[in-house]
Design a protein around this nucleic acid. Structure first.
Lengths: 130, 130
DNA sequence: CTTGACCTACGAAGTCTTTCGTATTACTCT
DNA sequence: AGAGTAATACGAAAGACTTCGTAGGTCAAG
């Protein structure tokens, strides 16, 4: 066991593929990543995923020749961790201020705004329970 | 001019002091940082702030023996940048999902919830112009 | 069996960040 | 002037992250 680090940028890219696509080989991940980031070497992705396995960010099934990697951390948990981290490091814990900047940074469409309102309703009804 | 990097963790700690306290010497910053992070060496903070000056994250006034450093980037802009960054890298651009995790990560008190509601009102009144 | 395709393992280089020791310069007080 | 205090400058080390070349293994097809 080790301290839980923030996943790095490279690790996050790979995790997002695994979350979206499910258990995948290195080649799978590399193909997908190549679409948005052409020029990424295959062995670069391989090495990164090996390191992620060492860090227990992913597990791997070695039964087949091409190992199959699966995420070992959940997307929503990771999101929560990263957002909580930013909240403390950048906003001094003020959720309101963070939400404001989030909405300033990326204009949310009416549907998203409605979703957020709905969330607020639920939070207030639950009396702040998570 | 250079690409605008994300400020690193160390840089952010210093920036937050400068934003809060205004223009400060290295000793000022070091004293304040020592309260929350004892054991940080003086020259460590000095070096970091020198590098930040190289990167134009801060400016410095060398008129006095103890140079006075000032932030060169605005807090709200930096917050917006970092939040927008996380939004893309972690949430695929979905502000609603990010807000949800922000609220899950740190319980907002009723007053904050009210502030957020108020923000939503304003955004909707401004007619969601893209 | 040999070749070619494809895979993993490994090491090493390059960059960035953080840390700090040491050297040097400047100012003040006696 | 000389000693002591306090500041900056500089270089170097350590660790993390990313990148990729090369070596070696496996398997199927000819």
């Amino acid at each position: 066991m080790q301290k839980l680090h923030r996943p790095t940028d490279g690790e996050l890219e790979i995790l997002r593929v695994l979350w979206r696509e499910g258990p995948s080989t290195v080649r799978d991940v590399h193909s997908i990543l190549s679409k948005t980031k052409p020029g990424t070497g295959y062995t670069t992705v391989l090495k990164l995923m090996q390191i992620m396995a060492d860090k227990d960010l992913v597990s791997r099934d070695e039964k087949n020749k091409a190992h199959i990697y699966s995420p070992r951390i959940r997307e929503d948990q990771t999101q929560k961790q990263l957002v909580g981290d930013l909240l403390d490091r950048v906003f001094g814990g003020s959720a309101a201020r963070m939400v404001m900047q989030a909405l300033a940074s990326k204009k949310a469409n009416p549907q998203e705004l409605a979703e957020i309102r709905h969330m607020l309703d639920e939070i207030e009804q639950n009396g702040g329970a998570v």
